[in-house]
Amino acid sequence: MARDLGERNREWFARYKDDVKKEGKPFFPRAMLHDTIMGLVTILVMIGLAVVWYYDADGTEPGILGPWYTEPAEPGTTDFIPRPDWYFYFLFYLLRIFEWPETVFIATVGIPTVALVLLLGLPFYDRRPERRPSRRPVAMVAAVLTVVSMGVLTWKGATATEALGSELIELVPEWAEEQGFADDEQAVAGADLFAVSGCLNCHTYLGQGSANLGAPDLSAVGRTNDAAYFVQYLANPAQFGNTVMGSYSYLGQENLEALGAFLEASKGGG
């Protein structure tokens, strides 16, 4: 390198300032006019979206931009799909990719942290003064790959399907048959609860559900522990070192016991 990088940078910036002073155009009103036009377009788009959203939907009836609101929050049931706003779909879908318990934190913390550090550090590891895209092949390829992978993840997140509680509850007789607890009323009641309480948003059971956040398959969980243990576990998973799963104590003792009976009866079928 003929000259020191810092020196070249400073020379370039001095030239830049000189040029802007001598041949630049005034920010006000010239550049500001373009900015204002863009600002107005932005506001109009916001109003447009609001109008389409409002007039196409009605209360909880969704239009093309979704409903005004869904049913009031109710911790007890999850007959619908937990889903963040669309611009978090890419994170949301990452979880589906890293479904094994030991790898979950790669998706929840690892990748986002690495991405953030790479983004923050960009000006410090890409120090060449060259700015033309045609001369920055590495940067351009990296950018295209980032955009494509975020696009794919967002798309996958948007189209990922999860079964609703109301669909899962239909499967309870099948489960009872396979696991052999059809005659145990308490276990069947527990299975109903299991189907509608959102457990299958994280766990899998006899091939149903979505493995999320490293939650284990529960088809044969009854081989490991008994009902009393499960009741305690569900009332306070944090006590058992499980900080991912929330407490289900709000279901009440009777319901917890039903769930416990169901889990104990789940010995893997066959």
Partner: peptide
Amino acid sequence: WDQTAYWATVVGINLNGTAP
């Protein structure tokens, strides 16, 4: 505070819980 909001947030908070 509707169902969508509530459950998206439950998942979001649980995500934070997986961090070391």
